[in-house]
Write a protein that binds this DNA or RNA. Structure first.
Lengths: 367, 367
DNA sequence: CTGAAAGCGCTAACAC
DNA sequence: GTGTTAGCGCTTTCAG
């Protein structure tokens, strides 16, 4: 008797399969499958049976095996999202956009990071292929072009996000037109009267990266300003020992008249690092050096930081990428598509205009 | 002729299955399977054949179907990681720890977020169950206790990370002993001569949260300080419209002699928000109000911010959680296990000691 | 050393 | 309306 009770209590023991549930109910497992997949109507299952199945599924904690389902139906229902890192809230913002779109669907995102590491990238992409992800949203890495092409030509919808790489023009992408943003940012420094404007970048060969640099050169030229090679510096994204410290030492050791009075940073991460380094050296921003970045990370908005920048429409990029992937999967779109988002308004904060910055009254919204 | 060439170029077209590869090579698909799974030796496959298979697999881009493999072998090779959000680098740091451990294994992490939303949490947990994740590392949410129990009793290794919930004592967990940290943090404020110390928390019913509050009360008591109800405030984690602004208005509107001269924030996120709000109100930290948090987020280290805090060993927690999950899966450990990490040293920064803070010379290390 | 064959749990035609 | 059945692509046992 006591044992019986224990048996009963142990009911939720290991996910019950569709087959077991069918046996429990005395119906065919096809019937259960139909009901569970919302195809009761289609296969003319009686309402009574359908409800009985649903109730039993809940009661016995029936959880269909995703792999079996996928194997048979040839749909995994997963969208791979492969980004660089989960830092600085970039991925979170992107995912908000992606989630917003796929919440109405059956798709689930699989988030992974490559950390700017080619090997990791290849490994993660391979995993995605093994999983038969139905679509991939990736921040592209050099030296993996072959893989992207083979994925794409294998018929797996692929969308490059955040950056583009030369040679991948035949692959869909969702990017921010950061060239205009870069031009606006540099012009902002010029308008502030800065004459010795330096460039802080990375050694990543992306098109966006290139365009931002081009806009920097062009804007200096348009304003008749000097373009000095020693004021153009790039940090390695792969070498873990390369830091902004090195660049700052180069720029600001020696004659102050030869040092930059403003820096255009390729992105906010670099801008933030730079501001930190300058602070550590006892220099004042923007008095000694004005700094502007690109991206408008949540961090940049902090009253204590106030990094001037241009907002990257990250969430909108997520939305676009998700929509594009969904269209690509459903066949509503045919590749390649290139969706370019605009945003070039300078957000002037204390790193360029100093105390004139009006700290917004609205909180950070985090928590 | 021309068509032939095109056919040849199209070779990488859709992942080649094990069966196709076997046909291409004129061997049995079992042989291919053995070689691909590194069991060539075990089944005495000739080296020549093994190499032939490996070469062909690479050449024809053979990618075994993960779902078929899982269905048959009953192992998914995925570890679910379900955290609140990807913000503030918490998840990234945790993942670094987890990756460090599982990089040597065949396991892959599946990262998902619940955003403090019960429904989302249930949905993500269900997905994990459908996927037959071999282990789950989750930041627990209230109102889902039933689910955690059923997962655990279904035999799926489950590890709670970051927090614990009453009623889940029978489930393994990896946590930081934040009670000691909280006591040290509050004592730091007391040692600085602060007398009117407020508490800023959240309405989450976690054990860690509770213990931090208890430590706050106890430390005030030990030092003979007043514990005022109106200086104890909690923000809702679920209501999106509740902000630190509300709390700050309550505390600092009215007689300054009745306002706190220091705040112990339950975590750095709250501490950071608080500092922002105070800055916006034109108040000085630490002159008017000293602030200390808990966690030591990367942000807190910023020279421009300098939030005093105690470091949460996030990466170590990831390492422990991953090890525990692996042990649980392999049967090397039997549940429940509770691993508690210690870290209670106060990191005094400008938010409590002001200009006396020595900004560390080492950079932020991000990029 | 290699091939044949039996499933893993599910979906979706097709019978009844 | 419901049950039967044939795979999805792989692993693994068992004969050869």
């Amino acid at each position: 008797m006591i044992q019986d009770v224990q048996e009963t209590k142990k009911t939720p023991h290991g996910p019950v399969s569709v087959i077991e549930l069918a046996r429990l109910l005395g119906v065919s497992h096809a019937t259960v499958s139909f009901v569970l997949n919302g195809k009761a109507k289609k296969y003319k299952i009686s309402d009574a049976t359908a409800e009985r199945v649903m109730a039993a599924a809940k009661k016995h904690n029936c959880i269909p095996n995703h792999h079996a389902r996928n194997l048979r139906s040839r749909k995994s229902g997963v969208l791979g999202v492969l980004v660089t890192r989960l830092t600085m809230d970039w991925a979170e913002t992107l995912m908000q956009g992606i989630q917003q779109v796929i919440d109405d669907t059956e798709y689930v995102p699989f988030i992974a990071t490559h950390q700017f590491d080619t090997e990791r990238n290849r490994k993660e992409l391979r995993s995605a292929l093994e999983r038969r992800d139905e679509g991939l949203v990736v921040f592209p890495l050099p030296d993996c072009e072959d893989l992207y092409h083979s994925i794409s030509s294998a018929g797996v919808p692929l969308v490059l996000i955040g950056e583009e790489l030369p040679g991948l023009e035949s692959i869909s992408s969702v990017v921010w037109d950061s060239e205009k943003a870069a031009a606006a940012a540099v012009q902002h420094l010029v308008d502030l009267g800065r004459k010795r404007i330096a460039f802080l970048g990375i050694d990543y060969p992306g098109l966006g990266t290139l365009h931002r640099f081009k806009a920097y050169c062009q804007t200096l030229k348009n304003n008749g300003l000097e373009l000095r090679q020693e004021w153009i510096s790039r940090i390695s994204v792969t070498r873990r020992d390369d830091h902004v410290t090195r660049v700052v030492n180069n720029w600001f050791t020696g004659d102050p008249q030869d040092a930059p009075d403003a820096v255009f940073a390729l992105n906010d991460v670099l801008g933030l690092s730079l501001m930190t380094e300058l602070t550590v050296r006892g220099m004042s921003v923007p008095e000694d050096v004005a700094v502007i970045g690109l991206g408008d990370l949540p961090l940049s908005r902090y009253p204590a930081i106030g990094l001037s920048t241009v907002a990257e429409p990250i969430k909108a990029m997520g939305v676009e990428a998700a929509r594009l992937i969904l269209d690509l999967i459903s066949g509503k779109a045919d590749l390649p598509q290139r969706r370019v988002l605009q945003s070039a308004e300078v957000i002037a904060r204390s790193s360029t205009i100093g105390a004139k910055w009006q700290i917004p009254r609205t909180g950070l919204g985090v928590l």
